[in-house]
């Protein structure tokens, strides 16, 4: 009952956000210097007159702004995200073809960083002040300050170009025509570097948060109660401290979902990972603004999805939250 209401509320909110993003896209195109039709077609001057005319016709660019907005929103609401002049295909088609690769990458990086961050942070807090704590804290500090694209490039140099342990770029070995488990393994090997380099920053972030949160919980009254019952330190840490300390980390993970999807643009660009992040880079280079805005829209939808997942996760852990907002 509470869950259904919660989901309905969140769905409504998500749709509102997407609507606002569609409006934002519309405004951005109008804010760009020059003729909106040119902007939509991309690559100023390269589009032919017939196509520009079609665009004007379709989006009613000669009509008043509110009407144009209406046409634009109507298109977005049916997932008609425009037409890519460069690729001669609908934008939505191009994006959805690339979406699975990005979901795989961001999903893997998200899971990896959350699990690793929580475990490392808890470990550091258990051994606060000792060598292992210092090691984890310093590592977290370093990866927290490392540019994502640079760590990606450098790990490419070390692990694939110099050591040859892992494939350099791409999603799978081209021309190998693998199937089933062999293909999954091949994709998995390709996934390691992108997912790890994308996840490192977030691992560092969650580890720092988890450590701080554990130390804070350590002073809580209920931890004193647990000790007073005669429970062993291991049980107190696991059952009483870790479960409570994880809550702010999950909240943070939800807030950071947007960063993760943004980071995928850089990772995919470096590793030529055929997802929507790479697509965004290509659209950028080719000035294919319809695709650019389409990717922006869909990645926002992804973030909303990630947020929903973390909120559901939170509800599983914390019994205090019932019903809606």
């Amino acid at each position: 009952m509470g869950l259904i209401r919660f989901l309905a509320l969140r769905l409504g909110k998500g749709i509102l956000v997407l609507f606002a993003i569609a409006v934002l896209n519309f405004l951005l195109v109008r804010a760009a210097p020059g003729d909106p039709a040119q902007v939509m077609a991309g690559e100023a001057g390269a589009a032919d007159a017939v196509f520009l005319e079609q665009l004007r016709e379709r989006f009613g660019l000669d009509r008043p702004l509110p009407e144009q907005l209406w046409v634009y929103i109507k298109g977005y609401s049916t997932l008609d995200l425009g037409f890519s002049y460069r690729q001669q295909r609908p934008v939505a088609e191009v994006i959805f073809e690339r979406l699975p690769a990005t979901l795989l990458l961001t999903g893997a990086a998200f899971g990896l960083s959350l699990v690793l961050g929580v475990v490392l942070g808890a470990l550091a807090a258990r051994r606060v002040g000792r060598a292992s704590d210092s090691a984890i804290t310093v590592a977290a500090l370093i990866f927290y300050a490392t540019p994502l694209f640079w760590i990606a490039l450098m790990s490419q140099v070390v692990f694939s170009l110099k050591l040859g342990w892992l494939p350099n770029v791409g999603y799978e070995t081209i021309g190998a025509n693998l199937t089933g488990a062999a293909r999954a393994l091949d994709i998995g090997r390709h996934l390691v570097l992108p997912a790890v380099t994308l996840g490192l920053f977030f691992t560092a972030l969650y580890a720092r948060m988890m450590r701080a949160s554990m130390l804070e919980v350590a002073g809580a009254d209920f931890v004193k109660t647990a000790h007073a019952k005669g429970l062993s330190p291991a049980v107190v840490t696991r059952r009483h401290m870790a479960r409570n300390a994880i809550l702010p980390v999950v909240t943070l993970a939800g807030v950071q979902a947007g960063q993760l999807v943004g980071g995928a643009v850089l990772t995919e660009t470096v590793f030529a990972w055929p997802g929507i992040g790479r697509l965004m880079y290509e659209a950028l280079v080719q000035r294919d603004y319809s695709v650019l805005l389409g990717v922006f829209f869909i990645s926002s939808a992804m973030v909303i999805l990630f947020n929903l997942v973390t909120d559901l996760l939170y509800r599983v852990v914390d019994p205090r939250i019932e019903g809606g907002a």
């Binding site: 009254d221 209920f222 647990a226 007073a228 005669g230 429970l231 059952r239 852990v317 914390d318 019994p319």
Partner: peptide, 21 residues
């Protein structure tokens, strides 16, 4: 000894129990 031979209760009942259990 704790729990078996000596039991203890604290000042703040609102925070002395684990909220997740």
């Amino acid at each position: 000894v704790r729990g078996r031979e000596v039991g203890m209760i604290f000042q703040e009942p609102m925070t002395s129990l684990n909220p997740l259990m």
